[in-house]
Every structure is written in structure tokens, then in C-alpha cells.
Write a protein that binds this DNA or RNA. Structure first.
Length: 520
RNA sequence: GGGGCGGUAGCUCAGCCGGUCAGAGCAGAGGACUCAUAAUCCUUUGGUCGUGGGUUCAAGCCCCACCCGCCCUACCA
């Protein structure tokens, strides 16, 4: 093996979830996409740190806990554990599951606060307006209306509001407009996809008001340093988790120096502003390096309809795992929806992918070729003869998939990578039918061996490339292809062809077809 | 109100700076084959590329207006 230059470390995060409920398919989507990215980079030889977790403070958590008669910490622990268990069930390969109630996070949040304060960007003022307790939000005069009962209501949410004045610390976000716009200009890939990024930019261009960043109306949060009656309001607390996760505030540690700044923050479109505006502003103020990219994914709809509790169409990730299988579910989510766009799912769409793409195109190709090898080649990788032009061509196309996938994953285009891979699988099925090794068996065994060998090679490379998306199934495929765990399954091994004579285990179907339960 | 995105075969969508751009996959139809998870392969179905104008030798691809869907934004009760 020739020594290669070490590849740069890769630090990736999901948004941390608010565990005031249970995870749904949208959470799973983000976890799975981020996980695929992390696995891809590991297989490509990078050191990866993958952070995920839960954001546990705030009034809603407090209320829910009170309602249940438990402490907010107990609630947070219970629900956070459930989120973590769900991630484990989804095969998420996180390196740390962070909880904002952990001691090191308090230290980190207070440290970044102090840095921003020292930079002169935090000041004390009053926050006033029409406050809705239920919405935990302030509304402008124009966003409210006085009803017949003489009370004032929020127009948008139809909840009662009261005039409230609250002492609050503010962050001087207004001072960062130009710096942010320069950042966006200098780093056109700072946020993606472009349409989402444009929304962010136009928001910043429209002018930035200073941001209220503390609360005194409740105490379930990180105390503001030197001002204990204030707790930090959501964003300073939550966003800082990305720093806490790798060792901040101790900026001298190996961990911090190795991982920060993050390479990619994967988030949903609902929180793009916080990640693409507030977060870089906070970091600039604190004098810390900025993350390289904020990847904004879309939302998933149930047959085009938004998920909601009232409609009863919220899907629990575990239900899908049970019904379709984990890898099938992971594949569907990443193959069906271009990452960044909104997507839609339906039972029919999932079954279509499961059966057409997985069971038929990939699973059956493996089964038919491996069965022939088992029966006609003594269960060993056959010895190919001189390769024909069509063999070379197919293999070349397959080998190109590595570069294509790298380019796709670089911009979190999972869908693009999978599309390219399945296109080659289509070519391979056509090749197999065209070469007809079952005919060659009687006419030209040497050629049959070659065709089977080439087909196995395609399967080997495809299996390696598909590991980030379907870790378990890909592993089983590689097993039946005689590829032991470890180096042979890294991307670096893609150029190392199968060794003729390698003994292969008896083939067995890996991607079951979905059968509708008998209805009546 | 301002800004943006999308409206292409039944379904999901490709179509970059205008000139094989009328395409792919899935579904449907016909045929072939039998190695395989009744899988696979081949052929195939003709959709006025949202509507109406305009620019051009030439327009899904440019311009204008309009319709529909979605999103961002705004101190218009």
C-alpha cells in the first residue's frame, strides 16, 4: 500500500431536537441523512466527529413537566433517552449525543456569552409587547386584535395576549448586517440549497433588529453569568451545543483544535435563520471561527399533506423500521427526495423503491449471479479470461461512481449518488441478459466465468458505495461477496479487484420484496 | 404590498448560457428469455412542455400579462 496524505477531519452535526414530544419521521430524516454523510466520510478515510442530541431548556419543557408533576430535568431525561434510543434504532453512528443540561454545556454557553459581552455586543434593556403565554411569543400591536369580549388576541394564533414588559439582555445583531452580507458573498456555499440561502440573504438585507437573548419569566435554562435571575433564551443556549460537543470553552484542547469549525450543520428549513444569521453573528462576536456550511433540508409530507397530530398522520420512525425494514427506509428517504427540497412519502412510493430498486435491480442481480457462481464455479470467485470491450466499459462506468459519489456527497446530494449507482445497476442487468452466462455455461465456460466475474466486481463496488445509506444490507452483500470487514470495505479498496478463487458463502436473498398483508 | 420558487407523458421528475429539447425512471401494453426474489432484457404508449401575447431565422428554455400551488418578507385595520 502506498502511503497517502491524511485526509482532513470532518465534523458534522444535526440540529439538536426539542424533546417535548416524541421523534417523528422528520427527525429521522435528518438523522439518517447526516448519518449517511458521516459514514461516507469515514469510509473515504476521514476522521469524523458526528454530534447530535437534545435541546432541553425552555418554558415548554417546564410547563409539560409541571403538568406531569415531575421535574423538568426528569422530563428532559426521559424524553431525551427516547430520542437517543430512536437514533440507535435507526443505526445513527453519532460520536456524542449531547444534552444541553450537561455541565460542560452550561460552561460553554456561559463562556460564549461572556465573550460576546466582552465584545460589547450584549446590553440590558426592556423587552415589551403583547405577550401570549401559550405561544411564548411577543406580538406587535398590528398582529393583535381586540375582540368583543374586550380582550386582545393574537390574530395569527388566536391566543390571548397581555402587555408585558420584561427586562432582557439583547445581542447587538444590528451591528452584524454588513459582516454577514460579506460572509454570504465571500462564501456562496455557506448555506445551501441556494433558494433557501437567498431567503436568508434577503432577510438580512432587509435589516436586522437586536435580539432578545434572555428571559426572567422562568428559570429552566442556563443562568446568565453575573445575572442569575436571567436565563439564556433558546438560541445562545441551543446553538452553542455545536461548540460544547468538541470541547469548548477550552479552545486549547486537541479535540477543539481538531474539530472546530464544523464542516456541516445539517438542519431543517424551519431553523435556517438561526443557523445562517444568528449563529455566525454570535461566533463573529465571540471571535470564533465560523462553520463552513449550513445544509438546509426540506420537510417531509405525508402524500403531500403536512404531518400533524390533529390529522393523525404523524409517523413514528420505529413503525417504518418495523414495516419496511431499516435499510429500506433509509434508502427510500435518501433516494426518493433530492436533499434540500421538500419531499413526499406514501406507502406506494416506499414499496415501489423497495421492490423495484432494492429487491429487483440490486437484490436479484446479486442473487442470480451468485447462484450461478455457487452452482457453476464451485462457489469460488471465478477466474476471468481476457476482458472484452463491454467488460471494460461496464467496469469503467462502475469505477467512476466513486468520484461521482464524492462530488455528490460534497454537497449532500445523496439522491444524485444513488441515482448514478442505480443507473449502473441497470446497465449491469442489461449486460447480464445480453451476455447470457446461462447460455455460455454450455458453449464457452471461460467467457461465462468472465461475465460472472465482472458482474461480481460491479456488485462489490456498488456494495461498498452503498454502505453509508444501507449499512446492514451492504455489509451482508459484502459478506456473500467474500469481502471481510475492515479495509476491504473502505473506499480505498474499490480499486482492489476480487481475487479469483476466493471461497464464497452460499448466496441468500438480502432485499426481501414487500408483500402486502393479505387483505379481506 | 415586496421578493422568490414551481406548474413538462397516468405518477415522480431531467432538460446548463435559446437551434436532435420533446426526455428518464416508475406504472401500463406487447414480445423474449429462464441464471435469478414471477425477477431480468427488448420494444412500446405520442404529453399543444399552466394560459394568452411578444422578441427571434429559431423558445419549455428570453420578455410581458394572467391563472394555479408553495415559500420568504413587510410598523397596509
Amino acid at each position: 500500500m502506498t502511503p497517502t496524505a491524511p485526509k482532513p477531519p470532518f465534523y458534522i452535526t444535526t440540529a439538536i431536537s426539542y424533546p417535548n414530544g416524541v421523534p417523528h419521521i422528520g427527525h429521522a430524516y435528518e438523522f439518517i441523512a447526516t448519518d449517511a454523510m458521516a459514514r461516507f466520510k469515514r469510509l473515504d478515510g476521514h476522521d469524523v466527529f458526528f454530534l447530535t442530541g437534545t435541546d432541553e431548556h425552555g418554558q415548554k419543557m417546564l410547563h409539560t413537566a409541571q403538568k406531569e408533576g415531575i421535574t423538568p430535568l426528569a422530563l428532559a431525561k426521559r424524553n431525551s433517552d427516547f430520542f437517543q434510543a430512536t437514533q440507535d434504532k435507526l443505526g445513527i453512528s453519532y460520536d456524542r449525543f449531547i444534552r444541553t443540561t450537561e455541565a460542560d454545556h452550561y460552561a460553554a454557553a456561559q463562556a460564549i456569552w461572556k465573550r460576546m459581552e466582552e465584545a460589547g455586543d450584549i446590553y440590558l434593556d426592556k423587552y415589551e409587547g403583547w405577550y401570549s403565554v401559550r405561544d411564548e411569543a411577543y406580538y406587535g400591536e398590528d398582529e393583535t386584535v381586540v375582540r368583543e369580549d374586550g380582550k386582545r388576541y393574537s390574530i395569527e394564533t388566536d391566543t390571548e395576549v397581555t402587555w408585558t414588559e420584561e427586562e432582557s439582555y439583547f445581542f447587538r445583531l444590528s451591528a452584524y448586517q454588513d459582516k454577514l452580507l460579506k460572509l454570504y458573498e465571500d462564501q456562496p456555499d455557506f448555506a445551501a440549497p441556494r433558494t433557501r440561502f437567498n431567503e436568508v440573504i434577503s432577510f438580512v438585507k432587509g435589516g436586522l433588529a437586536d435580539l432578545s437573548i434572555s428571559r426572567t419569566t422562568f428559570d429552566w435554562g442556563v443562568p446568565v453569568p453575573g445575572s442569575p435571575k436571567h436565563v439564556m433564551y433558546v438560541w445562545v443556549d441551543a446553538l452553542t451545543n455545536y461548540l460544547t460537543g468538541v470541547g469548548f470553552p477550552d479552545t486549547g484542547t486537541d479535540s477543539y483544535r481538531k474539530w472546530w469549525p464544523a464542516d456541516v450543520h445539517v438542519i431543517g428549513k424551519d431553523i435556517s435563520r438561526f443557523h445562517a444569521v444568528y449563529w455566525p453573528a454570535f461566533l463573529m462576536s465571540a471571535g470564533l471561527p465560523l462553520p463552513k456550511r449550513v445544509m438546509i433540508h426540506g420537510h417531509l409530507y405525508n402524500q403531500g399533506v403536512k404531518m400533524s397530530k390533529s390529522l393523525g398522520n404523524v409517523i413514528a420512525p420505529a413503525d417504518w423500521v418495523q414495516q419496511y425494514g431499516l435499510d429500506q427506509m433509509r434508502f427510500f428517504l435518501l433516494r426518493e427526495v433530492p436533499f434540500g427540497a421538500d419531499g413526499s412519502y406514501s406507502h406506494e412510493a416506499i414499496v415501489g423503491r423497495m421492490n423495484a430498486d432494492l429487491a429487483n435491480n440490486l437484490g436479484n442481480l446479486a442473487q442470480r449471479s451468485l447462484s450461478m457462481v455457487a452452482k457453476n464455479c464451485a462457489g469460488q470467485v471465478p477466474q476471468p479470461a481476457t476482458l472484452a470491450p463491454e467488460d471494460h466499459e461496464l467496469l469503467a462506468r462502475t469505477e467512476r461512481l466513486l468520484e461521482k459519489s464524492r462530488a455528490a456527497y460534497e454537497v449532500q446530494d445523496f439522491h444524485g449518488s444513488l441515482e448514478a449507482i442505480w443507473s449502473v445497476l441497470g446497465d449491469t442487468n442489461a449486460y447480464f441478459a445480453d451476455q447470457a452466462p446461462w447460455v455460455l455455461r454450455k458453449t464457452d465456460v471461460e467467457r461465462m466465468n468472465t461475465v460472472l466475474y465482472v458482474t461480481l466486481e460491479v456488485l462489490r463496488i456498488v456494495s461498498i458505495l452503498v454502505q453509508p445509506v444501507m449499512p446492514t444490507s451492504a455489509s451482508r452483500l459484502l459478506e456473500v461477496l467474500g469481502q471481510p470487514e475492515g479495509e476491504a470495505r473502505d473506499f480505498a479498496a474499490i480499486g482492489t479487484a476480487l481475487v479469483p478463487g476466493t471461497v464464497l458463502p452460499a448466496p441468500q436473498p438480502i432485499f426481501p420484496k414487500y408483500e402486502e398483508p393479505a387483505a379481506d
